[in-house]
Design a binder for these strands. Sequence first.
DNA 1: TTTT
DNA 2: TTTT
Lengths: 163, 163, 163, 163
Amino acid sequence: MINRVVLVGRLTKDPELRYTPSGVAMARFILAVNRTFTNQQGEKEADFINCLVWRKQAENAANYLRKGSLAGVEGRIQTGSYEGQDGKRVYTTDVVADSVQYLEPRNGQASPNNSTTGQTLEHQRRSSEYQQPQTQPNYTRVDEDPFVNSSGPVEVLDDDLPF
Amino acid sequence: MINRVVLVGRLTKDPELRYTPSGVAMARFILAVNRTFTNQQGEKEADFINCLVWRKQAENAANYLRKGSLAGVEGRIQTGSYEGQDGKRVYTTDVVADSVQYLEPRNGQASPNNSTTGQTLEHQRRSSEYQQPQTQPNYTRVDEDPFVNSSGPVEVLDDDLPF
Amino acid sequence: MINRVVLVGRLTKDPELRYTPSGVAMARFILAVNRTFTNQQGEKEADFINCLVWRKQAENAANYLRKGSLAGVEGRIQTGSYEGQDGKRVYTTDVVADSVQYLEPRNGQASPNNSTTGQTLEHQRRSSEYQQPQTQPNYTRVDEDPFVNSSGPVEVLDDDLPF
Amino acid sequence: MINRVVLVGRLTKDPELRYTPSGVAMARFILAVNRTFTNQQGEKEADFINCLVWRKQAENAANYLRKGSLAGVEGRIQTGSYEGQDGKRVYTTDVVADSVQYLEPRNGQASPNNSTTGQTLEHQRRSSEYQQPQTQPNYTRVDEDPFVNSSGPVEVLDDDLPF
DNA sequence: TTTT
DNA sequence: TTTT
């Protein structure tokens, strides 16, 4: 059994960050992936793919990705269902990311978004599915820099190359 | 922009074969892909992923895959939507296969399924979304053997190996 | 930065199991993946891809895979180099597996291979690159059954299904 | 049988463009893909993966990619071998790209590289493995813009969206 | 509910 | 609507 997905596309909106009742972070976003071919009217179309990430990667995504950001996602397809408001079953398909790649150089602003916009809190306030954690999860601080691989030309010195 | 999916799983039912009004074959099936981890109750779960294939691969799938068949799919995620019967928009996510792999040895029966069961026709009869083609599409005959790579131990002679 | 590989093919030989000096298991095998197209002489060819796995997955591979086994590999490409015996640099490309899938039903024999053939030990004896571990690594016992998804019914009770 | 690779990384050098005796374009480049983890000395390392593309995509790559360019590659692993100069067999592993993605906005310069630098010709002159084509292949002109998805607005009118 |  |  194999279930593997790789996507590169652009976020249609800012990510939404939530916490499970036990305090685990989860972020959702939609990736617009332009198709390489045109439809019968000769127009380019896109696929709009629901993605979700967990834990520290969720907080990184909420901090560093914005509407329009170019991002890569490796993960798997996850299907599920829930009871719709009309009592009918609604089926869902998401890509659960094992890792998220930031494919654009970090933009000018020095600090991650939540410290300036308060938007993450706003997101949590709108949250219905999940409660907010009673206690601060211990990985709230963003220690890693997810841009470490994306910010510059990789600075490959000729001496480093094994050829 | 990258959109790539690889799946290996088992069909939950026989594939459904249809034809577009212009006579292009399309097959649909659902792949059950067991997860490698258990849920909080310690149970194994699966993802049920809608797959679709076009043209000759569609006819091959209809001929050679059955409920329970182990199959591999390479393709891309395609999203769309349609008007539900209650007027609400319903969003869809499918994997469109570029290629389908038959990962089980061909079973005993000598001939492909449609010649014996008539089931493919039955499927077409139930078809609502697509009309039947007015004329026979010219690739009705299944010329290729999609099992060419799956039926036996690959018969790798030691002399063939480059090491 | 993304580096993702999915392979399904057959082992050209039994896997080779080794241990690092610190006692970490590693298995190597070559996967023959038949091409879907023919060369200019109309012959089918294959790619022979070096794979390696670590830790418990290495021991599972050594126990349950044999020459000719159909297996799936998810992982990443890893390149490296070493000094050849003639002093020249030799470049290597391997697929390091994050997970290995057993795509054939377990065969008749009741016990895993190493308990009957002693071959794994023979492999270790031929090992040059790595020493044998001084102490038994604590995961020598194979507790998990990697065939859990490939052989028998996963026992999905109707009540478990979310639809 | 499945053989699928997805890479995102940066070119270690400009691509090399060659032509087969029958006039088919082929480009080679090496993609440096930084690892997401560090080695035991705490250093980031990278994998250096040989990639090759054919036909119009080869010419696009030669025209639009440069040392340091961020690119995505979808393809398959291809292994082969040739007789080394010391008579010993040398084994090769390449990723043959089905498609190449340009993940950086086109830079300022108006025209593709070969029209200004003459470098492509220089590459051909150094070519040993392949001769130059006797006649101009008929796809020399670059008609498509491979940046169509990476630079400017794809111009999705609201009316086009299916939701 | 759609990005560049 | 779910496979082995």
